[in-house]
Design a binder for these strands. Structure first.
Lengths: 348, 348
DNA sequence: CCAATCAATGCAATCGTTTGCACAAACGTA
DNA sequence: TACGTTTGTGCAAACGATTGCATTGATTGG
């Protein structure tokens, strides 16, 4: 079907080596005559030659492919990230292979295994979290690797993420400033980096403001919208419901919105809502959501730069980069006076 | 670094062939003794053996990889599609490689080229459209290939898509039934399958209802939100603005919403809106959008099934499958009486 | 006892590229 | 003339896995 160097060699009467040099090398280096070059190129075109990257990869021990692992490709945050990464990688002549782990650590492990088997030149991983033995093994096997968005404090490996603690501080402080004290937190998957750091920021903000932490207001267990939906319904049944909810991710917020709509709860008049993540459509929601934006473009640029650096220079010291999040104030938070709080509570 | 069959052979004292048979074959077939099997497996584990898929692919002329090409990975419709495809493919033991063409036909062509060079076992393509010579070449080279969502009527190739004409008919008929006659259509990229078929449905619905087609109400030129934003602003400046807008894709609708918000136009009271595509967040928008839903799950199931069939059976006749779209009525369309139309117009 | 069968394994070619080394012819130089 | 250089090209060994075809020693049937 597809022709090979050999086919071209046969057709032109030169050797395979010469053909290879003409088609892929800087053929100056080997001083191939112009006439031979012409002949070979012509034959290649006629035969529809396409290099076989498997053979090249095998020979060179280099595939020009980067493995990407994300928890959920359909999550707008990650699909934006992938798109951005793709662009950055393309600039450097790399292709990429994505794996979607569906927030499942065992799928993540098998993804890592597959990528090793494919001999990718490096990996960029947004890990589910929870555990990192598989990633540690990669590092020890000297595979260039950068963690993005979801990383591990206790694992010495290159990483870029946003300062989640600070993001939560921004969000919760904003709510507090608007007079809220009963602020619920709907978590993502416990044990993951993103979740624990965001939770930490939430607690710290409350502490700093001298507001006690009510464990009943910390609920939920995964980053999907169903979690937001169910937990919001549950929170609303609370005898003294929260006046504000802070969600750990965009999909959770969507679920929360759905629950509110179902119960006729209006945002922000009945309940305030702030969320981590800020995908494109946040500002079109009803109401436009106040949200914590992560600098996706910058994250991906840095991740790719770090990966290239690591590939060139395997023994450099490893770096952990934290980027600044940003609070985008829109219209899902209302100002609460002491009075409104009291009337609300007595209304229950 | 990573060990090979040879390393294991050396360590255990058996031949490479035997190692290969133990690790990858149904080793019954070659009657390898239990004792040898044990030894080999043990050594493989100790050495941390990982198969080299490049070598396997080269030898077998089969990679167990499928190429995926989509116009925009960050578009929720396509990211949902990818996720769904990934699941289906995984079931069959296939991995996949995605390319995002950014709605650019020249990137699509180079993606096709790359995938050929990687010797993928098949491709699933949601084409930009406009042109199909590159895809025709693939087909003629006997690469198993299925077009999904974006295909070509005039190209004989397996494909699954939704009945776009019918979808537009549903949408526009709904608007007409609610009393609208000045209905604008904000297009996607002209010359693409999705766009032309949706446009066709739009025109047909108007014709069927005896409503003349006003070419000034057919605007726009790409599937991104900026297009929706700009064209909506422009439409609103029209001396006799439309009472309803039908957008060819979800991102266009988002752009339209943004423009309306900016101009203080309320939906649906001032303007009705219906869109093609129905990503998860549609129902959380302000207001919840009436939209045409495509059966993504079914599309991907069928696409993968067709691809497997084509891989098994290269010479079967090719099929073109059209699935039913669905109109989801929500709250972005208002009923228009003759009276309201008149008052509106005189208000201008 | 000899031939046929079988169990268990090894040999070596192959997939398509790349590249260090060798080599012949032509050229320059002293 | 003799020798070093340059030019242009080919040889052959990798890269790691698979598999048809031996091969060997043991077992069985007649």
């Amino acid at each position: 079907m597809s022709s090979t160097l050999k086919d071209i060699a046969n057709k032109t009467g030169v050797s395979v080596s010469t053909v290879s040099r003409v088609l892929h090398d800087n053929s100056k280096k080997y001083k191939i005559s112009d006439e031979t070059q012409e002949r070979v190129k012509k034959a290649a075109k006629e035969l529809g030659y396409r290099i076989n990257t498997l053979a090249r990869g095998l020979r060179l021990q280099k595939t020009y492919e980067i493995g990407l692992i994300v928890p959920d490709i359909a999550n707008p945050f990650f699909s934006a990230m992938i798109k951005s990464l793709a662009g950055e990688l393309r600039k450097g002549g790399y292709n990429f292979i994505v794996y979607d782990t569906d927030e499942d650590i065992s799928i993540e492990k098998s993804a890592v295994k597959s990528l090793m088997e494919k001999r990718v030149d490096g990996m960029i991983i947004a890990s589910v979290g929870q555990e990192f033995s598989h990633i540690q093994k990669l590092r020890d096997a000297n595979v260039p690797i950068v963690m993005i968005d979801r990383c591990f404090d206790s694992l010495d490996i290159d990483s870029v993420s946003v300062d989640n603690v600070k993001g939560s501080l921004f969000a919760v402080n904003h709510l507090i400033k608007e007079g809220h004290t009963r602020i619920a937190f709907i978590q993502g998957l416990p044990g993951t980096y993103a979740n624990e750091t965001r939770l930490q920021g939430y607690k710290q903000a409350l502490n700093d403001a001298g507001i006690g932490i009510d464990e009943h207001l910390i609920v939920g267990d995964d980053f999907r919208s169903l979690n937001g939906y169910l937990e919001t319904k549950h929170l609303l049944k609370n005898p003294v419901p929260p006046t504000a909810i802070f969600t750990a991710g965009d999909l959770i917020a969507l679920g929360a919105l759905e629950a509110c709509r179902e119960h006729g709860i209006r945002i922000p008049s009945d309940l305030s809502l702030v969320t981590f993540d800020d995908p494109v459509f946040t500002s079109y929601l009803s109401p436009a959501l106040t949200a914590i934006e992560q600098p996706i473009q910058k994250m991906t640029e840095m991740a790719v730069a770090m990966l290239y650096r690591r590939m060139r220079n395997p023994d450099d010291e490893r770096r952990k980069i934290l980027l600044e999040p940003k609070l985008n104030v829109r219209s899902s938070v209302t100002r609460l006076t002491t009075l409104t709080t009291i009337t609300r509570i007595t209304n229950q």
